[in-house]
Simulated scan of single mutants.
Amino acid sequence: MKGLILGSVLVLVMVWLVWRDQKKQRPSRSRKKVQGALQDFLPMDSFREDGTLEVEGKFRRILRVGDINLFALSMQDILRLRETFKQTLQRMENPFQISVQARRANYTDYLNYAKEVVQETINDVNNEAFSAFSEHLLEHLEQEAQKPRTDRENLLVMSVLPKVGGESEEVQLERLHNEERIMVEGLSDMGIRYELLRPHQVVEAIQNFWHRQRAITQRYRDALERGMHAPRVTGTDDIPEEERG
């Protein structure tokens, strides 16, 4: 009986030793951190360093363009813009998309700037009546800043498809950049501001379009720098070319 028990113990010890040796020989599975790609949360196939996108087999480029104040233009200027736009469309080989996006405005920087200017003016004027008026003005601005407002931007999305029979990516990208060149020339002839989006701006624009409930809050000073809230002259027939848009 003792021999049977001793034999069983020896067998168990040998099994445990074999299992331990096999475990040492197995390669260790280290958990590697995998960073999420843009394709995991945005509908795109690839993203290039110059901002070119590939979506559903199409290469795309995005331009941000300014506004046109038709009330500040004469009928002659309006007809010229329409004719220039028509000629631009005739030169392009592929359709393009116009996307108007709205983002929640953030007035924090604007309020800080207003407070600094008002305080400097109060110190220079040194007048009690003006100081009281300035305090009411700042209170009014703070109340207005609490109201929900949005900033709008216009995007032109240009794309090309491979031609029938197949076409290399290099040729497709060349045609896409040619489409962009034609559009830029047309915008310049019409006197409309435009901006070539940098890669991170392209991502923000697409994220804002596909995930509107989580849209990136836009800083108000960015809108000021882009001229989206620049003062416009109205009621005149003659506007310098550099002030149009």
Results as ranks from 00 to 15, higher is better:
residue 132 A to K: 08
residue 125 V to E: 02
residue 158 M to A: 03
residue 244 R to A: 04
residue 159 S to R: 00
residue 201 Q to I: 04
residue 193 R to F: 14
residue 135 E to L: 12
residue 232 R to Y: 07
residue 64 R to K: 09
residue 95 P to M: 09
residue 125 V to A: 04
residue 101 Q to F: 10
residue 127 N to M: 06
residue 204 E to K: 03
residue 182 I to N: 01
residue 206 I to D: 00
residue 129 A to I: 15
residue 212 R to K: 12
residue 204 E to M: 08
residue 101 Q to H: 05
residue 67 D to V: 14
residue 68 I to L: 08
residue 51 G to C: 02
residue 70 L to C: 03
residue 197 L to A: 01
residue 127 N to Y: 09
residue 219 R to W: 09
residue 114 A to K: 05
residue 47 F to A: 00
residue 25 Q to P: 03
residue 139 E to F: 11
residue 159 S to T: 02
residue 184 V to C: 01
residue 87 Q to T: 15
residue 57 G to K: 02
residue 110 Y to H: 04
residue 211 H to Y: 12
residue 219 R to I: 08
residue 237 D to P: 04
residue 105 A to M: 11
residue 237 D to G: 15
residue 164 V to D: 11
residue 41 F to Y: 12
residue 17 L to V: 15
residue 151 D to E: 09
residue 180 E to H: 04
residue 75 M to V: 14
residue 129 A to K: 09
residue 168 S to V: 05
residue 127 N to V: 08
residue 217 T to L: 10
residue 234 T to Y: 14
residue 198 R to H: 08
residue 232 R to P: 02
residue 92 M to R: 11
residue 201 Q to R: 05
residue 79 L to E: 15
residue 104 R to S: 12
residue 49 E to D: 14
residue 96 F to K: 01
residue 230 A to F: 14
residue 204 E to P: 01
residue 1 M to F: 14
residue 227 G to N: 03
residue 175 R to A: 02
residue 193 R to Y: 14
residue 73 L to W: 07
residue 55 V to F: 06
residue 211 H to K: 03
residue 93 E to Y: 13
residue 152 R to L: 07
residue 237 D to W: 13
residue 215 A to H: 01
residue 81 L to Q: 05
residue 105 A to T: 07
residue 76 Q to M: 10
residue 161 L to A: 04
residue 151 D to W: 10
residue 120 E to M: 08
residue 88 T to C: 10
residue 10 L to Y: 11
residue 50 D to F: 08
residue 82 R to M: 12
residue 39 Q to H: 05
residue 140 H to S: 09
residue 232 R to N: 04
residue 17 L to M: 13
residue 56 E to M: 07
residue 184 V to H: 01
residue 97 Q to T: 15
residue 149 R to F: 06
residue 177 H to P: 00
residue 154 N to C: 06
residue 148 P to L: 08
residue 10 L to D: 08
residue 132 A to N: 09
residue 192 I to C: 01
residue 157 V to A: 00
residue 119 Q to D: 14
residue 77 D to R: 11
residue 9 V to S: 09
residue 111 L to C: 04
residue 150 T to V: 14
residue 52 T to H: 03
residue 167 E to G: 02
residue 78 I to W: 07
residue 204 E to R: 05
residue 173 L to I: 06
residue 52 T to N: 02
residue 117 V to I: 10
residue 39 Q to Y: 05
residue 185 E to Q: 12
residue 80 R to N: 13
residue 241 E to I: 15
residue 51 G to W: 05
residue 5 I to Y: 13
residue 70 L to M: 08
residue 220 Y to I: 11
residue 221 R to G: 03
residue 42 L to I: 05
residue 4 L to E: 14
residue 64 R to I: 07
residue 229 H to V: 15
residue 60 R to C: 13
residue 15 V to S: 08
residue 215 A to T: 06
residue 7 G to F: 10
residue 28 S to E: 14
residue 228 M to E: 08
residue 223 A to M: 06
residue 137 L to K: 03
residue 114 A to W: 10
residue 78 I to F: 09
residue 34 V to G: 02
residue 22 Q to H: 12
residue 145 A to W: 04
residue 3 G to F: 12
residue 236 T to K: 11
residue 23 K to P: 02
